[in-house]
Design a protein around this nucleic acid. Structure first.
Length: 503
RNA sequence: GGCGACGUCGCCAAGUGGCAAGGCAGAGGCCUGCAAAGCCUUUAUCCCCGGUUCGAAUCCGGGCGUCGCCUCCA
């Protein structure tokens, strides 16, 4: 029973065997902090958060490193537009990034180095590359020579010669080869700069990941992750630099996530079709967003839409249902339905099997390249079994004798969801959130004379039970309608009226 | 133009050689005073054509369509 992962380098699923048993060194490219991250960026971070959580759940000691690129062309441009320093701009969006990740329920990285604090090591790597003949300096710029690295193009499945013939990049005559990329850029007036053997300047893109990953984790990395649009040129170049400089394998398993799309088109800041993560989270709970994303395999493209999010919200409620029902049943202790063709014992056996099956299937699916969509099917299967037990089967039992198996079922639902970072809120709504109109309603229908929302709801609940016991359907239905207008859900259960709000 | 990926129920989406998961929506039934929730039942010759195989959604070839990368991009 081994974990298998799809490796971009080999284009196949491979057995996952880390460099050291029971530990995983994992690196995921972080953001360039020139703006808020959008929901497409978030998908990638979510993907690797779940991979990390799963590996940890399976017993690996995971060291998870994610860089923050806080010096870059886009930061320089944006800072100029806003009239702030690049450092200020980067600081602002670094804070925003961390806060957005936190809001999405992403576990904090083990370490999160900043590019600007790693410059001396970057310079050291560039020097190594120059010394070994893989890089050359021209007028204060330093370029990596792709022809000096025989495996160039292997990760992205490209051929250097074909790349050159199809290249759309403008040719810089100072480069020895059009595909050579900058390791170090001479500073222009007003740009952030660091002293170097080639004059004042700043690191090129790609370099920070090579340096920080090796510094924090050592080589080879077990897992290097990112979205598929980073395969070329970013990861190809990282790999060339790192392997040329170190002489060893850079990465054992390259994992790449599929892109989020809008109207069948990639979501990106340059296309302008994006939504900021923070704005989505203002409308949808993190668990709903996560469920939405987990319903598609991480390597597939995923169409973003609010319709899909609404569906995910409904699906989330389906999972939350039995967990809430159990909490309610525990409090009211009033359910028993024994009869029928099943004895309670047979129901308990069946639910017990459902719990075991769900766990086994969850592991099977997740072991197979982190198939969260399949893993969720296992969870939904157990949701169905638990619902059947509570509503068609013996329920909690006259004396609560079925509580243990129901608690195990609830745990069997919560545990895999926890691995996916999906929290199920099974608590009652705080009283302070009831709409103020509820008081007036309670005055009208229940003769309530206080000012407390929760008390008002309780008075209404009792009043409605009285009306129903007297078969006064007109009043009972009117109360239900009025409550629903205020957004409160009224359900008649075997033990009486239930009123819920804020789901 | 080059390279790569994908095309599965009304919508979304797992499944990569042995009778097609799951979610959302729809229909019917049970339960209910009526509802809600829940349970049960129900809908797929897996884009098209050809090939390999005892057997293919799954492998191979061709076609059509969509997307990504080749330039900053999670």
């Amino acid at each position: 029973m081994a974990i298998r992962v799809y490796n971009t380098m080999t284009r196949t699923k491979e057995a996952f065997v880390p460099r050291e048993p029971d530990t995983v060194a994992m690196y995921v490219c972080g953001p360039t902090v020139y703006n808020h991250i959008h929901i497409g960026n978030a998908r990638t971070f979510l993907t690797f958060d779940v991979i990390r959580r799963y590996l940890e759940w399976r017993g690996f000691d995971v060291t998870f490193v994610q860089n923050i690129t806080d010096v870059d062309d886009k930061i320089i441009r944006r800072a100029a537009e806003e009239g702030v320093s690049t450092a200020e701009l980067a600081q602002t969006y670094t804070v925003a990034f961390r806060s957005a990740m936190d809001a999405l329920g992403i576990e904090k990285p083990s370490r999160q180095p900043l590019a600007t604090q790693t410059v001396p090591r970057m310079i050291a790597m560039v020097e190594r590359l120059i010394t070994s003949g893989h890089a050359y300096e021209v007028d204060g710029d330093v370029y990596f020579s792709v022809r000096s690295f025989p495996g160039y193009g292997k990760l992205s499945g490209r051929d250097i010669n074909e790349l050159e013939s199809g290249a759309r990049i403008e040719v810089d005559e100072r480069k020895e080869d059009p595909l050579d990329f900058a390791l170090w850029k001479a500073a222009k007036p007003g740009e952030p700069r660091w002293p170097s053997p080639w004059g004042e300047g700043r690191p090129g893109w790609h370099l920070e990941c090579s340096v920080m990953s090796e510094q924090e984790l050592g080589l080879p990395l077990d897992i290097h992750g990112g979205a598929s649009d980073l395969i070329f040129p970013h990861h190809e170049n990282e790999r060339a630099q790192s392997e040329a400089a170190s002489g060893t394998t850079f990465v054992k398993y390259w994992l790449h996530g599929g892109l989020l799309q809008v109207n069948a088109e990639k979501m990106s800041k340059s296309l302008g079709n994006f939504m900021f993560l923070k704005d989505v989270l203002a409308v949808y709970p993190a668990s709903v967003v996560r469920l939405f994303m987990m319903q598609t395999h991480y390597r597939s493209p995923l169409e973003f839409s609010t319709d899909r999010l609404e569906e995910a919200r409904t699906a989330y409620e389906r999972i939350a249902g039995p967990l809430r029902d159990l909490e309610v049943a525990k409090r009211s202790r009033a359910r028993e339905r024994a009869e029928g063709s099943w004895t309670a014992g047979a129901w308990v056996s069946r639910l017990t099997k459902g719990i075991e099956d769900a766990k086994a299937r969850f592991i099977e699916e997740m072991d197979d390249d982190f198939n969260t969509a399949g893993a969720l099917a296992a969870v939904f299967g157990l949701v169905r079994e638990m619902n059947a037990f509570m509503w068609e089967g013996p329920g909690i039992g006259a004396h609560g004798e079925n509580l243990p198996v129901l608690e195990r079922a609830a745990a069997g639902i919560k545990e895999p969801l926890d691995v996916l970072g999906i929290e199920i809120e099974a608590k009652a709504t705080p009283a302070s959130e009831y709409p103020p109109e509820i008081i007036e309603l309670a005055v009208d229908y229940a003769g309530y004379d206080g000012t407390d929302g929760a008390e008002a709801v309780d008075a209404l609940r009792k009043a409605r039970d009285v009306a129903r016991s007297q078969k006064n359907w007109v009043v009972a239905d009117a109360m239900r309608d009025r409550l629903q207008e205020l957004g409160l859900l009224v359900e008649d259960r075997p033990d009486g009226t239930h009123i819920t709000y804020g789901r």
